[in-house]
Simulated assay, not measured.
Amino acid sequence: MPATTDPLPGYRRHPVGLALLGLAAAAGAVVLWHVDPRQAGSPLPPCPSEWLTGLFCPGCGTTRALHALLHLDIAGALAMNPLLVLSLPLVALLLANQLFALPAGGRSLARRIGDARPWAVVLISYAVLRNLPWEPFTWLAPG
């Protein structure tokens, strides 16, 4: 009989780590539910890239977008960081691939989505485009 390999090395063997990750995500969701990052005096920090350079990084607006999503404000989330909102289903597929045994088609798709090269192109392009000062690119800026 050929030896089978576990498609989830480490994940099934480390349920405590998985539980801690889930607990941290839940705690973050609770904080974002109760704390509005758009309010003056918010305890949540501003984007360090924007603070240092004045430019929007690909992640600018992520905290505000997640806050909006938790409150089911899809339009508000898209206004803050459209790339994040549009990529969440892909991230969910990648996470599901790591945590569960997906069918072969799902694993194949997750492997293609998980390739870092296209993501690097998308993130760099998004960072450049959201800092251009004319429409329609100004729509990519948070806010």
Rank of each mutant, 00 (worst) to 15 (best):
V121F: 05
R112G: 05
A79P: 02
A29Y: 00
V122W: 04
R130K: 14
S87M: 12
A96W: 08
Y11D: 02
A29R: 01
S42L: 12
R130S: 12
T138Q: 04
L90F: 15
L52M: 09
G22L: 07
N131I: 14
Q39Y: 11
T63A: 06
L21T: 00
P45T: 10
G54N: 06
L66Y: 00
V85D: 01
E135V: 11
L21M: 06
A68H: 00
V122H: 05
P37Q: 06
S108D: 13
F56N: 12
L140K: 08
V31Y: 02
G41H: 07
P2A: 08
C57H: 13
V122I: 14
A68P: 00
L72A: 09
Y11H: 05
R13P: 11
L21D: 00
R64P: 04
L129N: 04
A110T: 07
F56V: 05
R111M: 12
S87A: 15
L21A: 09
N81T: 08
D115V: 14
G41P: 01
W33N: 10
Y126T: 14
A65V: 06
P133N: 09
A92I: 12
L8T: 03
A79R: 11
D73I: 14
G10S: 09
S49W: 11
G106Y: 07
T62W: 11
A26E: 05
D115Y: 15
G10M: 09
P46Q: 08
Y126Q: 10
G106V: 14
F56W: 09
D6H: 03
S49H: 11
F56Q: 11
L109H: 13
G114K: 02
A3T: 13
Q98G: 15
P58N: 09
D73M: 11
G61F: 00
E50A: 05
A27P: 04
G22N: 10
L94E: 04
S125G: 15
L99R: 04
T63W: 00
P136V: 12
P58R: 06
R117S: 10
L70I: 08
L95F: 05
P136S: 09
A27I: 10
A3L: 13
P118H: 09
L44C: 03
L8S: 06
W139V: 12
A40M: 14
P89S: 13
A29W: 00
P133H: 09
P9V: 04
A19T: 09
G114F: 01
L83Q: 00
L52V: 07
L44Y: 01
Y11E: 03
I113V: 15
A75E: 11
G54D: 03
L123R: 04
L99M: 05
D36R: 08
T4K: 15
V85F: 02
A77W: 02
H14N: 12
A120L: 15
L66N: 00
L52Y: 05
R111E: 15
L132P: 03
V91M: 15
R13W: 07
I74P: 00
D6Q: 03
W134I: 12
L129D: 03
G143Y: 03
I124G: 08
L140W: 03
F100P: 02
G143P: 07
L109D: 13
H14C: 09
L20F: 05
L88R: 07
P7W: 14
A65P: 01
A27D: 07
A79Y: 04
M80D: 07
L83E: 00
P58V: 08
P43K: 02
T63G: 02
H14F: 10
L8P: 01
T63E: 01
L140P: 00
T4E: 15
F56S: 10
I74H: 01
N97P: 01
A120I: 14
